[in-house]
Design a protein around this nucleic acid. Sequence first.
DNA 1: AAAGTATGCAACCGCGTCCAG
DNA 2: GCTGGACGCGGTTGCATACTT
Length: 254
Amino acid sequence: MGRAPCCDKANVKKGPWSQEEDATLKAYIKENGTGNWIALPQKIGLKRCGKSCRLRWLNYLRPNIKHGDFSDEEDQIICNLYISIGSRWSIIAAQLPGRTDNDIKNYWNTRLKKKLLGPPLKETSRFSSQRPKPNSQTLTLNSTALERIQLHNLQFQGINNTFSFYNNPALWSKLHPLRGTNDSLIPTKNTENEPSHNQPVTAGSKDQDSCETSSNFNLMQAELNDLFYAFDEEAISSSSWGLVFQDYETGYDL
DNA sequence: AAAGTATGCAACCGCGTCCAG
DNA sequence: GCTGGACGCGGTTGCATACTT
């Protein structure tokens, strides 16, 4: 016995929304606000699933939704947060006013990932012939983990680049918007007695001109430690992980 | 110009979480 | 503490459009 369906699938319209449907939904919410999404379609005579109405409202109809190209700063924020917390799009979206999680997810999967990492890595003969093929679950976990490591590696390589994140203190506050709160989302290895590097980094909290490369390096090292602790223990310890770093351009092992 | 392929994005699906009863 | 309904989220699908051959 499974879960009861949220709506009568047979009598529900699917696919793109018409202007009339949009107008009906918008007018109702403007008048009454959002409430019970499941009951809403019946109230206003829409042959839509309540979840579909919610999605349409959140992603397109609600005020102040920003569509169109992402700025470089938004790219940077998405990239840094993806490294820090992975594919938690709703949290990432919360840091980008006007952007929706769906928008960011699509943007990442279709464009930003390619822009930063290059085209998808083809399976190498080494991987396919010498390593046990991971099951689909570990494959999914690994690809996300691997992307994050590769992105971190790119930032590492860019340490001497004036425009890189690590040499751009103005962006630091954007890296850890969740830090500085008591409910940090990123587990760290710090014990209570150890000095914590996991402190909020805020732009202007120190003399930006005095930020030497070495301190940036320390920051980066600390973040790399955090990164590994953020991964599933299973992902790190699994012998089936097949972790080989490869250059996306050349395909050579790093 | 037509067919095939790639890309981008809106929308759907299923599952985990939350919370009232 | 348990249960069921609703919500919220991330992954996936499907379609329209753009691009290539």
